[in-house]
């Protein structure tokens, strides 16, 4: 029954809610209870924007069972313009075109489904920023 596990994280997975330490201004995604830089315990919540930059990346060719049938797919670490870093898939781009430093934008996507009769987990994946 993982639906409660995903449900309680909807503010983060659906709306990209992050937090900023009131003491030292360090940003966290997901929010934390204790700042790992200054040990502060007071935070303000804010919604991240969708823009970011690829810090590193790879192509998953042998996925775990939950992602069978989807490989190959790219994943990367994205440094969000608003501070925190996150790991997510990089989609809608030829795999060989992904580069460190590439500008991306997060889009709302299906992350995975719990089998054929379980809950669908939604979240954000990165697409190349095109104007």
């Amino acid at each position: 029954m993982p639906s409660a596990r995903s449900w309680r994280a909807y503010p983060q997975t659906y709306r990209l809610e992050a937090s900023r330490c009131s003491g030292c201004q360090k940003t966290f995604f997901p929010p934390r209870q204790v700042c790992n830089a200054c040990s502060g315990r007071e935070f303000e919540t804010f919604r991240m924007g969708y823009g970011g930059t690829v810090v590193t990346h790879t192509v998953i060719r042998t996925p775990g069972d939950q992602f069978q049938g989807e490989a190959p797919f790219a994943v990367g670490i994205i440094a969000m313009d608003d501070g925190p870093k996150m790991t997510t898939q990089i989609v809608d781009v030829p795999l060989e075109e992904i580069r460190i430093g590439m500008k991306v934008k997060l889009e709302f996507r299906r992350m995975y489904a719990e089998g054929h009769d379980g809950v669908i987990e939604y979240g954000h994946k990165a697409v190349p920023l095109r104007e």
């Binding site: 997901p30 998953i60 994943v75 992350m111």
Partner: peptide, 24 residues
């Protein structure tokens, strides 16, 4: 698991990302 695993990244994937950064 919640913030890395749900996007499909595997352990080889995590070390591959370190390798890409190290190579760069």
């Amino acid at each position: 698991m919640k913030w890395e695993g749900t996007c499909g990244v595997t352990f080889p994937g995590l070390y591959a990302m370190m390798a890409v950064a190290h190579m760069e």
